[in-house]
């Protein structure tokens, strides 16, 4: 069960590349786990290390010493496209990230992120460009993410509003999850099933008599 999503202030990890796919976020060879252990090390693995295992020189952005502890990723358009692997948000969260600011997120990634306390913040391209310029001018700029108000506070009392699905916002703020909501609707599910016969039977013997 995730923690309630509280307002926080952090510096920014800039990664403005477009169409970053989930194979880059966690390469497939790290998907052979049966739990969620070790994923912070797998994060962006092939962008961080050479084929022989040496760290890249200069280091990939998340390995720069000043990036340690930062909780906001400033990403490019269509972040998280490709594979449905939930290992991608698991790894981003395991590294310490709590929000991804971008101009659009892939659908499956967005859903996976919201279920793991990682907030996708989608803003207009113009505002995204301004924010990127701000971070390029001052790498230590601090942003405050306030989910309850739906704004990112910028320095100088400027607010950047963003939209989040209201149901997802409620789930995040309360630290509850969708499975609990579904289980609480068991009576609705049972009633629907009573009036809708199964479409298929997966058992090898075929439909039971």
């Amino acid at each position: 069960m995730p923690e309630p999503y509280a307002t926080f202030t952090s510096r920014v990890v800039p990664l403005p590349a477009e169409n970053v796919d989930t194979d880059q976020i966690v390469p497939a060879r790290y998907l052979k786990i049966t739990d969620k252990a070790g994923l912070a090390d797998a994060l962006f693995r092939d962008w961080r290390f050479e084929a022989d295992g040496r760290p890249k020189d200069p280091p990939f952005v998340i390995d720069r010493p000043e990036m340690a502890g930062r909780q906001i990723l400033l990403a490019g358009d269509n972040f998280g496209c490709g594979s449905s692997r939930e290992h991608a948000p698991w790894a981003l969260v395991a590294w310490g990230l709590r929000a991804v600011i971008t101009t659009s997120c892939a659908d499956i990634f967005r859903g996976n992120a919201l279920k793991n306390g990682l907030l996708p913040i989608v803003i207009e391209p113009d505002r995204h460009r301004q924010l990127l310029e701000l971070v390029e001018r001052d790498g230590d700029v601090e942003l405050t993410v306030d989910l309850a108000l739906g704004v990112v506070h910028l320095p100088g009392d400027e607010d950047l509003p963003f939209d989040v699905d209201p149901f997802s916002r409620l789930m995040l703020l309360e630290g509850t999850d969708e499975l609990g909501y579904l289980v609480a609707h068991d009576a609705d599910i049972a009633a629907w099933e009573a009036s809708h016969p199964a479409r298929v039977d997966t058992r090898p013997a075929g439909p039971a008599a």
């Binding site: 939930e86 969708e178 579904l182």
Partner: peptide, 20 residues
């Protein structure tokens, strides 16, 4: 359509999903 592992758990448990 494809889903993440949290949703796999939801479908296993309830045979349902929350979707817009």
């Amino acid at each position: 359509f494809g889903i993440g592992t949290s949703e796999v758990e939801m479908v296993l448990a309830t045979q349902c999903l929350l979707q817009r």
